[in-house]
């Protein structure tokens, strides 16, 4: 198949001055914050919100909003990378780290090797707890110091910034530990099971 013709004068507007080692291959920096959702934005009232850690049929821990807010809070600044090729640098998030969630339910390590994140609206994504521990993952409730907007996943979303951003599930409500891996919403439809942007693992087979 021949190369597609170059469109004279067309430049990706996303090209900006970026140190090369900040951007994974194939990514472009954006200064806005694109919204991509697999369904309508759920309107969630925090009074009705709960978050749960589950193992098999057992609830390891569950918190309502007030309880969740009393858990140790961590603030991070990180880059995020969407599989649709935009990257956003130096984004600030606050929330409860996965490590602190495990501590809160009396666990020193994850009780199973796999996790499925379940969200309002039905979205799911699978991520190994090994990629959430050591400060790699959190349940975020603030973006740039303010409550996360519903269209960006508020009141709470999973944040796993070292993987493609579809893994940072919006409107997360439950992390279910699994003994065997299962594929989530996009992973079961051709997207990569793991999703490392630095290895450009966008699609199954990459």
């Amino acid at each position: 198949m021949s190369e597609p013709p170059i469109s004279r004068g067309f430049r990706s507007r996303r090209q900006e001055q970026t140190p090369k080692n900040r951007l994974p291959p194939g990514q472009y920096v954006t200064t806005d914050f694109p919204v991509l959702s697999a369904g309508p934005t759920p309107q969630i009232k925090v009074e009705n919100w709960t978050f749960t850690l589950q193992l098999g049929g057992a609830i390891l821990g569950t918190w309502n909003w007030a309880e969740f807010e009393t858990l140790p809070q961590t603030t991070i600044k990180t880059d995020i990378h969407c599989v649709t090729k935009w990257s956003k640098l130096d984004t600030a998030w606050q929330g409860v780290t996965f490590d602190d969630l495990l501590k809160a339910v009396g666990l020193s390590e994850p009780p199973a090797p796999y996790i499925m994140a379940h969200c309002d609206g039905g979205y799911t994504t699978n991520v190994p707890p090994a990629d959430l521990v050591g400060g790699q993952g959190m349940i975020a409730t603030r973006y740039e110091g303010l409550p996360i907007l519903p269209m960006h996943g508020g009141p709470a979303r999973l944040l796993v910034p070292h993987l493609y951003f579809w893994k940072s599930a919006k409107w997360v409500r439950r992390l279910r530990f699994m003994e065997k891996d299962e594929r989530g919403f996009w992973e079961s439809l051709g997207y990569h099971n793991y999703g490392d942007p630095w290895k450009e693992q966008r699609y199954d087979g990459d």
């Binding site: 697999a38 369904g39 309508p40 039905g122 996009w186 079961s188 439809l189 051709g190 997207y191 966008r202 699609y203 199954d204 087979g205 990459d206």
Partner: peptide
């Protein structure tokens, strides 16, 4: 609002559910 159909065009193939 139920999901009726999903499709993806990856760099290798096409998926339909």
């Amino acid at each position: 609002d139920g999901v009726v159909m999903r499709a993806v065009h990856t760099s290798h193939d096409r998926w339909l559910e």
